[in-house]
Design a protein around this nucleic acid. Sequence first.
DNA 1: GAATGTTACCCGAACGTTTGGGTTGCGAAC
DNA 2: GTTCGCAACCCAAACGTTCGGGTAACATTC
Lengths: 346, 346
Amino acid sequence: MQSVSANRSFPITLRMIADQLELHVSTVSRVLHGTSGESGRAAGPATVERIRRLADELGYRPNPHATGLRTRRSNLIGVLVPRLSDIVLALIYEGIEEAAAGHGLSTFVTNTHDDPGIQRSRTEMVLARRVDGMIFGDAYADARFLAEVTARGVPFVLVSRRAGDLPSVTCDDHLGGRMVGEHLLALGHRDVAVVAGEPYASTGIDRTAGFVAAYASAGIEIPAPRVVASGFDAPGGRAAAEQLLACGPPPSAIFAVNDFAAIGVLGALRDRGLRAGTDISVAGFNDTPLAAELPVPLTTVRSPMREVGRRGVDLLTRLLRGEQAESERLRPELVVRASTAPAPPG
Amino acid sequence: MQSVSANRSFPITLRMIADQLELHVSTVSRVLHGTSGESGRAAGPATVERIRRLADELGYRPNPHATGLRTRRSNLIGVLVPRLSDIVLALIYEGIEEAAAGHGLSTFVTNTHDDPGIQRSRTEMVLARRVDGMIFGDAYADARFLAEVTARGVPFVLVSRRAGDLPSVTCDDHLGGRMVGEHLLALGHRDVAVVAGEPYASTGIDRTAGFVAAYASAGIEIPAPRVVASGFDAPGGRAAAEQLLACGPPPSAIFAVNDFAAIGVLGALRDRGLRAGTDISVAGFNDTPLAAELPVPLTTVRSPMREVGRRGVDLLTRLLRGEQAESERLRPELVVRASTAPAPPG
DNA sequence: GAATGTTACCCGAACGTTTGGGTTGCGAAC
DNA sequence: GTTCGCAACCCAAACGTTCGGGTAACATTC
């Protein structure tokens, strides 16, 4: 293994190695990059050893442009996310990067800010780089754009959000929502509300649906005005909570489909002098690192974010090998903290 | 402009265009990629138009492998950060991406978790991809590793953290620290403490130094035990605060060199029944989106994170053009909120 | 009307790999 | 003493661009 400190800047090529050993570049190529069977047939054991040693000594690194040109594969995958400054996506990306490195792939990530125009243009740009496949973390539930990408024959998978029956790896959001519903039901909350997130993201949709389904199984229908769309960030959650608290009697519990929105809800409650947990229960989703650190630690659903990223890559590599790819829903886990408490009597 | 929906998957080459128009590929190349002067000399106006139209119609995209092989430039830059799940770095990266796109560059980002081993191996990997230059967001203050990279002749700049006199774009951390110091001095705090961050990061070092300098100018020396190293995350800040509060009379104010550590400090205070702002003042650094949303909104220093990223790219492009590159320190801004209040009398 | 310029192109060799197909030389089998 | 098989290599054509150098045809200058 050659260290970074190799003090020349021009790159070593196969030809240099071949010339120095008086061999043909093809022989060197086969030894260095061929399958073990191939390298055995390409040269005698002594030669193999000489080649390996010199390559190592010189710090040979194959030129990816040449390889890519010849093989039409780049070992690159493109990743689109709404924004890396959302820790959920950042953690998923960590998983992606980790798994990709394990497969010898490099990743290429860009923020699309959930803007369809940017989504398009960045996809175009990523594809122009001749990536082998893509991972979308910013899928719109209506899979219109993604259908176009499919038509184009680009292998891809979705992470975090799902859409239609495109291959995806997500948290089982419906289950997660149900878990929160059942938890709040068990605490005696009958009048509850949902801060539901963006209407185009399956995460919010599914979590809300699961929550509503839990209440439905208990014979309680959550009235439509109790479910309000919101941004996925703190200001979004705050605005939604303010809307919920603006008129009529407040719900006894609020489920925000993500931790940041939940923090916004917490802020709105504080502004009205309401104590989270004590006066109104609040639950979030994702178990962001901050959830436990909040002044009133947040009840939330732990979703396996890094794992989603890792499995997304695994799924994509299967797709790239031409294998059949099944979507996965990973199991979340309810984490009960102080922000949810038994409903006040009556 | 060709849309994503072009329903063929094989890529268009210069040769296809050339054959179809009965021209030579070099002519097409010059028209499509040459400078405007060059394309004028390469073909007549009518031909130029024909080429442009067909390229557009077919959705021609130059093969970056071929271009890279020929020109030895990839229009790629590698970015190393400690972790994108740290919103500070994520925002800097947003700036990097934005500016890079503006320069026609693509970026390649990886997490190194502040681990020198990973730093090395990822640098190796990024360099193997033949990037044109690198941006390090994870510089160690002792620039040992970076000196090796310099020796290797790779153009690079630092962002967020500086080291030695390597070209860098940072927030003026020393000034930011001084601002906090002056603010707390003005509020009458004489016995203060610093949660100083990791000892290898210039951010923590400079912010601490600026703060200490402010007190020194007022004739107050901050005793060594009042300055404790810490992780840059909430648990790190919490641990440091617990250490500070463990023995002897507590300080009347604590400056944490970053918002996450400050949140940890807040948690530690709460656990001891102390109210931030009222009992002990707390200040952070960076003005993370959450700072304003906290139950006790956090006094902090706003640092221009996206701008740091953008300018980092600008600096790198200057370096790539062979121009002289001057480091930049961007001016931060103090944001006073409820977590700092006048010192109790006595 | 020969020299010179200009316009509008074409030619071909690189760049560093990969890979399907050789070609030796030699020991073994017939 | 051919023939065969095999080990250990070599050969050369691609992959899609770029770019330093042509060149033919025509116009301009003296």
